[in-house]
C-alpha cells in the first residue's frame, strides 16, 4: 500500500510541481508557480488534445460495435466451447504490443494486398493509402484495446439468468424486445467498465500513432513523449500530462454520474 502511495500519489504531486516550473535548456527545473504553463499547453496543443479524445471516442464505439456481438455470441451461442472461444479472444494479446502493431503496418502498407483490393474496388483512390491515415491509427487503437471491451461485457452477459429471458418470452416478448428490455440493461455495467478500459488508455496512447500514423495524426501522447524525452521541456510536458489526466478524470466522473453505475471492478 505504501508503495502505491509513494510511487503513485507522490509522483502526481511532483508532476504538478514540475508543471508549475520553468526550465533552463539543460533540463533543470525550478518551481516558480507558473500557472501559465497550463493555458500555454492548451493553446499550443489543443488540436492534439481534441484529436486524442476524438480517436479514443471512435475507438470505444468501434470496440463496442465489434466486441458486444462477439461477447454476446460467446455467452449465448458458445455452448460447451465458451471457454475455448473466450480464450481465443485473449490469445492474440500474448504477443508483444509493439510487434502486433508492426504487423498491422504490414497489413496496411501501400503495396500490400489489402490496399490493392480496396483500390480495385474503388474504395480508395488510385493513390489512396491506408497507412499514415487517421483510420489506420483508430484501427490500431481499436485492435489493441478490444479485449478490454469484450471481457467485461462477456462477464456481465454471462451473469444474466436465462430464466429472465424465458420469463420475458412467456410474457410474449419477441427476441428483439427481450434483448432491448432484459439483456441490454443487464449488460450495461459491462459496457460501462469496458468503455472506461478502452477510452482511457486510448486517449493517452502514442504507440499506434507513432507506428501507423503520420505527423497529421499526432496525438497528445506523442506530444508528451516528445517533450519529455526528446526536447527535454519537462514543465510543458508535465503540464500537458496533468491537463490530460484532469480532463479524463472529469469525463469519467460525468460518465459515471450519467450512467449511474458505481461498480468499477471488472
Amino acid at each position: 500500500m505504501a508503495w502505491l502511495v509513494l510511487f503513485f500519489m507522490v509522483p502526481i504531486w511532483y508532476l504538478l510541481r514540475t508543471a508549475l516550473s520553468t526550465s533552463d535548456p539543460s533540463g533543470n527545473t525550478s518551481l516558480v508557480w507558473r500557472w501559465a504553463n497550463f493555458s500555454d499547453s492548451w493553446s499550443a496543443y489543443h488540436s492534439q488534445y481534441l484529436r486524442s479524445f476524438w480517436y479514443a471516442l471512435l475507438c470505444t464505439i468501434f470496440c463496442i460495435a465489434i466486441g458486444y456481438p462477439l461477447a454476446y455470441a460467446i455467452a449465448f451461442r458458445g455452448g460447451r466451447f465458451k471457454t475455448l472461444l473466450l480464450g481465443l479472444v485473449v490469445v492474440p494479446f500474448f504477443t508483444s504490443y509493439l510487434v502486433r502493431t508492426l504487423a498491422w503496418k504490414t497489413i496496411l502498407q501501400d503495396d500490400g494486398p489489402l490496399v490493392r483490393v480496396m483500390r480495385d474496388l474503388h474504395l480508395l483512390g488510385g493513390q489512396g493509402r491506408l497507412l499514415s491515415t487517421s483510420w489506420a491509427v483508430i484501427g490500431g487503437l481499436t485492435y489493441n484495446f478490444l479485449p478490454f471491451m469484450i471481457l467485461p461485457i462477456y462477464v456481465s452477459l454471462e451473469k444474466i439468468d436465462p430464466k429472465l429471458i424465458e420469463a420475458g418470452k412467456d410474457l410474449y416478448s419477441n427476441s428483439f424486445q427481450s434483448f432491448r428490455k432484459i439483456v441490454l440493461p443487464l449488460s450495461l455495467p459491462g459496457i460501462f467498465a469496458g468503455s472506461l478500459l478502452t477510452f482511457i488508455p486510448a486517449a493517452g496512447d502514442f504507440v499506434n500513432s507513432a507506428l501507423l500514423g503520420s505527423t497529421n495524426t499526432r496525438m497528445i501522447g506523442n506530444v508528451v513523449e516528445g517533450n519529455f524525452l526528446e526536447t527535454l521541456d519537462y514543465p510543458s510536458a508535465a503540464a500537458i500530462s496533468f491537463v490530460l489526466m484532469a480532463i479524463i478524470l472529469v469525463l469519467v466522473t460525468i460518465y459515471t454520474r450519467a450512467l449511474g453505475t458505481e461498480e468499477l471492478t471488472v
Partner: peptide, 26 residues
C-alpha cells in the same frame, strides 16, 4: 484504499510514466 487501487487503472499510462519520471528527476 479502494480508490487508490483503482486510480492507477483509470489513469492513462503516459501520465503514470511521466509523473514517475518527474519524481525521479526531482
Amino acid at each position: 484504499v479502494d480508490l487508490i487501487l483503482v486510480l492507477p487503472l483509470t489513469t492513462p499510462e503516459i501520465c503514470l510514466g511521466s509523473s514517475l519520471l518527474t519524481l525521479f528527476l526531482t
